[in-house]
Design a protein around this nucleic acid. Structure first.
Length: 502
RNA sequence: GCCCCCAUCGUCUAGAGGCCUAGGACGCCACCCUUUCAAGGUGGAGAUCACCGGUUCGAAUCCGGUUGGGGGUACCA
């Protein structure tokens, strides 16, 4: 069923893709997909001083990586400009804003303002000193034609200010119901076009949302106080305002608005740490929304199926990394083998480049490891921490670490030596977990040891770690030759340490 | 300062007047499984539903106030 729902995400390329932007994009996307509407992306790059092409790419790549695809958007980062309302980049729409501003000026709904930054700052300081609300004093609001001409003659570049009419502006927010704000609290007439001719956010966002027929504006709660300005502008421009829905904010652990200072906010960082897109999307969807059931692991398509703005929470949600890791683990356990392997490879290769391991295994080798590593991975990057020892040439294990708690050095030396002999009895064909275990159990039986002690000694001697996947599976993954070589090396080191001891 | 918003376990949340002596999940603790680590299973601790009034036969749910928290107050977005 076709729908006239049109929503958008309008990122500003002044920084890398932020978790908050991704969440807002996701909710818009889910709403569009749920209603059969259209989701568009518009680049708000009018802050030329801070916008960069690199940030644009990071944002678009990040959104694509998450699977949040748009139906209409700019031609950027290898993409084709797509959609009937092109261009979707504000710096390419300057004539549209200029035309709209001219219309407002002509109708005296806006006026040129010649106040200098110094005057404005002085006004604000005076108001603060008098403990009054800060607002534009209206110095240029009622200038005569002659007065304007005089200022023009002085060469002052005028900004364009929008006349804020008295009264109350209200709207029925889809998340927080009725909201009403007295325009007296808006800070006076506000600038819509800077002195240098660049249009400002409050203006461009309205001109574009109107031009692009955006039906629902779904954005963060931090925009609630801006909404009256936007509604006033829609009215002045002769458009019916869209429906608004203000989402709760994503918060730092301390409850303040999520910031780079207190949290990891760049989506790219989570990608680099081995979070999978399904988990990030799943987790983000549940920040401020819930299907009302007790299920919590959903793929993107199912989220879209169930998503309803009516079920969005009003209060902010603190970002909980531990919970994200749990969701990530859930998703890693659900991925198809081939898929998981291909996602794991880059992390293994990165570890090799970083010198943490000496060789990169083939995909087949990694696939064979899946049964023993899968449920041990909170993140993709954890693969190296879990079984990286398999790909290291020389472990150089500390002899002291090889000695189990209940054992001493001589016992450990004996244990490793006899275990080595027992294992060496297997050829490459019988080098299977089921085959390796019985002889060692028998050895333990004969010696009167505890299996756990012997196994731990072998574990540390062959992996350098006290925590690994199941020992025999690990030895199989290591292979006969390397297992025996590591055992030999461990025995030598342990013996040498014993010799040196007093 | 001024304006606006919000308020259920530490955290994410279920809850739309009686089903709530408040449910689930993360985290935490214990036990089971077990060669370590995970995963999984079972059980547990953890919320006088911020507080005070009111409406009602009955309130976490409705109303008012208080307190607390947050957001906004730019020729940034």
């Amino acid at each position: 069923m076709p729908s006239d729902v049109r929503v958008r995400i309008a990122p500003s390329p002044t920084g890398p893709l932020h978790i908050g932007t991704a969440r807002t994009a996701l909710f818009n996307y889910l709403f569009a997909r749920h209603t059969g509407g259209t989701f568009l992306l518009r680049l708000e790059d009018t802050d030329t001083a801070r916008s960069t092409a690199a940030f644009e790419k990071d944002i678009l790549d990040g959104l694509h990586w998450l699977g949040i695809s748009w139906d209409e958007g700019p031609g950027v980062a290898g993409l084709e400009e797509a959609g009937p309302y092109a261009p979707y980049r504000q710096m390419q729409r300057l004539d549209t804003y200029a035309e709209a501003a001219a219309r407002l000026l002509a109708a005296d709904l806006a006026y040129p303002c010649y106040c200098s930054p110094e005057e404005l700052v002085a006004d604000r300081k005076a108001q603060e000193a008098a403990r009054l609300p800060t607002r534009y004093v209206g110095r240029c609001a009622t200038l005569t034609v002659a007065e304007r001409a005089a200022r023009e003659a002085e060469g002052r570049p005028p900004a364009t200010r929008f006349r804020v009419r008295p009264g109350v502006v209200g709207w029925n927010d889809l998340v927080r119901d009725r909201v009403e704000i007295d325009t007296a609290n808006l800070g006076g007439d506000f600038v819509i076009v800077r002195g240098d001719g660049d249009p400002l956010y409050h203006f461009t966002v309205v001109v574009d949302d109107a031009a692009m027929a955006v039906s629902h504006v779904i954005r963060g709660e931090d925009h609630v106080s801006n909404t009256p300005k936007h509604i006033l502008l829609f009215e002045a421009l002769g458009h019916t305002p869209p429906v608004f829905a203000h989402l709760p904010l994503i918060l730092n652990p301390d409850g303040s608005k999520m910031s780079k200072r207190k949290s990891q906010t760049a989506v790219a960082d989570y990608v680099a740490q081995g979070f999978v897109r399904e988990a990030l999307v799943n987790y983000l969807a549940f920040m401020g929304w819930s299907p009302g059931t007790e299920e919590e692991i959903f793929p993107l398509a199912e989220l879209a199926e169930r998503f309803e703005l009516e079920k969005v929470q009003k209060g902010g949600a603190r970002f909980d990394r531990e919970r994200l890791e749990w969701v990530n683990g859930q998703w890693i356990r659900r991925l198809e083998d081939e898929d998981l392997v291909s996602r794991l490879m880059p992390f293994i290769e990165a570890a090799r480049i970083a010198g943490e391991i000496d060789r990169t295994p083939g995909e087949d080798e990694v696939r064979a490891l899946l049964p023993i590593v899968r449920e041990r991975l909170p993140t993709l990057a954890a693969i190296v921490d879990t079984v990286g020892f398999l790909w290291v040439d020389d472990l150089a294990v500390d002899p002291a670490a090889m000695i189990p708690k209940r054992w001493d050095a001589p016992t450990t030396l004996t244990g490793l030596t006899e275990a080595r002999a027992a294992l060496a009895a297997h050829d490459a064909v019988t080098w299977e977990a089921d085959e390796l275990e019985p002889p060692l159990r028998a050895l333990v039986e004969v010696r009167g040891w505890k299996a756990g002690d012997l196994f731990m000694a072998i574990r540390v001697a062959t992996t350098g770690r006290t925590a690994t996947p199941p020992l025999f599976d690990t030895l199989v993954a290591l292979g006969r030759e390397r297992t025996l070589a590591r055992l030999d090396a461990a025995i030598v080191r342990l013996a040498a340490a014993g010799t040196l001891a007093p």
